[in-house]
Design a protein around this nucleic acid. Structure first.
Length: 422
DNA sequence: TCTGGGGTCCTAGGACCC
DNA sequence: TCTGGGGTCCTAGGACCC
């Protein structure tokens, strides 16, 4: 039965206007007479707490030129009467996970790339190139029937081309992009539509007279390397359809953990800043312990009222996973770097992670051992009775939430984080 | 009350060592 | 004496992704 030659192809599945579509479907299921996807609507953060940006837009909203990531203020300028819906991340994670369940029916190897994107690898008869397209249509229709939202499916010989293909005409479409199709389908496209060519790189390339993906593909790679260093070689390979990364079930291991938050008011005093750093550290350290890791580098990020962002980091002597010890470092870093201006946003970031085995053995340090037990107990209580079941006394009469940064809170560990690598 | 939050990777430049 | 020079570690900052 294995006599027939089989080919591996990659599908990239991308939910159309994910947050907005999921919100629309949920509302229809709960008896709403209107479909948000047909209105000028966006999913947007809360402006009162200074989170007012567009997270997702409907087709009609897109026609007004509304962009993901722009301020709701700017979006309303483009489209007066715009409907703004607050996000519900728990709902989106449920929808995401339901999608992944369907994808598993099509392939044993499903790689979730973000909350609304996944790669799957399929083995299909080499003789019939149309087989992949038929399968993709079946998949897309099944998602629409069972879950109520539409997806684009890109089919290619590797992840890069599959992903480029899923970006073609939207919504609810299947596209292929094989090597022999690059000259027709990909090379005429403007340079900034290539994966990994962002604003800065596109501007530089245009400065050198390179306007299309095809023009980049035709260059001498040594020249692109001279212009753009290592990322230059990467995008030159992408422009030529070269990508050797594999579809892997779990994706790359976690290399850093960060929590940051734009605060509803400007922070002007050290004590409040320290308290917010504690709330941020609590969730970051819990996530760190949940994956049995310690951190070697602690960083604090500060964004001023004027939107100037800077960060300060330090490598610590002993790897840490204790909330108190990480917080202590964060406060020191803050005190060393804060220039005294009003603060809009604070972040705590942990990197250079390492296993906690060594750390667990070094229990000669009584102080660390006590802190570690305390953290473990608190983590257990929070997992059993909810994150709000235990919080530090200093938050008792404070307007600051005792755990900050994790909008996803209870369930976040169950979901893979986004990654910029294929 | 105009500009989120989660990541990864790369590079420049300074400190330090031999 | 007219300030070599390679390697490593570290921090800051910028690019990209969703």
């Amino acid at each position: 039965m294995f006599a027939e030659q089989m080919n591996e192809v990659v599908f990239h599945v991308d939910v159309n206007s994910a947050y907005l579509a999921w919100e629309a479907v949920d509302r229809l299921q709960h008896g709403s007479p209107v479909d948000l996807r047909n209105l000028t609507a966006v999913i947007g953060g809360d402006e009162a707490s200074r989170h007012g940006i567009v997270l997702a837009k409907s087709g009609p909203a897109k026609k007004y030129g509304i962009l993901t990531g722009e301020t709701l203020y700017a979006a309303r300028q483009r489209c007066p009467g715009l409907i703004v819906i607050p996000p519900r991340y728990h709902l989106y994670m449920q929808c995401s996970s339901a999608l992944i369940d369907i994808l598993r029916q099509y392939s044993p190897v499903v790689q979730q790339y973000s909350i609304d994107e996944a790669f799957i690898s399929c083995y299909l008869p080499a003789k019939d190139p149309q087989e992949g397209v038929k399968t993709a249509h079946r998949l897309k229709e099944q998602v629409k029937q069972e879950l109520g939202f539409t997806v684009n499916v890109g089919i290619g010989p590797n992840k890069l081309l599959a992903k480029m293909a899923s970006e073609f005409e939207k919504p609810d479409k299947v596209h292929t992009l094989f090597h022999h199709e690059m000259s027709d389908k990909m090379w005429p496209l403007p340079i900034d539509e290539l994966f990994f060519v962002g604003r800065a790189t596109a501007r530089k390339l245009r400065g050198y007279g390179i306007y299309t993906i095809g023009a980049l593909a035709a260059l001498d790679p040594a020249l692109v390397h001279a212009w753009l260093k290592k990322p230059g070689l990467l995008i030159w390979q992408y422009a030529n359809g070269k990508d050797y990364s594999q579809v892997t079930e779990q994706g790359p291991p976690i290399k850093s953990i960060g929590n940051s938050n734009t605060i509803a008011f400007d922070v002007t005093d050290r004590d409040t800043a320290h308290q917010i750093l504690l709330a941020l550290t609590e969730t970051a350290a819990m996530r760190l312990r949940a994956i049995d890791q310690c951190t070697r580098v602690v960083a604090v990020a500060i964004r001023s009222h004027e939107l100037f962002t800077y960060r300060h980091q330090r490598k610590v002597q002993t790897p840490l996973d204790s909330t108190s010890l990480i917080w202590h470092q964060a406060c020191q870093l803050f005190d060393e770097s804060w220039k005294g201006e009003p603060i809009r946003h604070l972040g705590v970031h942990l990197s250079e992670l390492c296993g906690n085995d060594f750390y667990q053995l070094s229990i000669f340090d009584q102080h660390n051992e006590k802190l570690s037990r305390l953290d473990q107990t608190i983590d257990l209580l929070r997992s059993r009775f909810g994150n709000s079941s235990v919080f530090r006394g200093c938050f008792a009469h404070s307007p600051i939430r005792p755990l900050m940064g994790g909008v996803l809170q209870e369930q976040e560990e169950e979901y893979p984080m986004m990654s910029s690598q294929l």
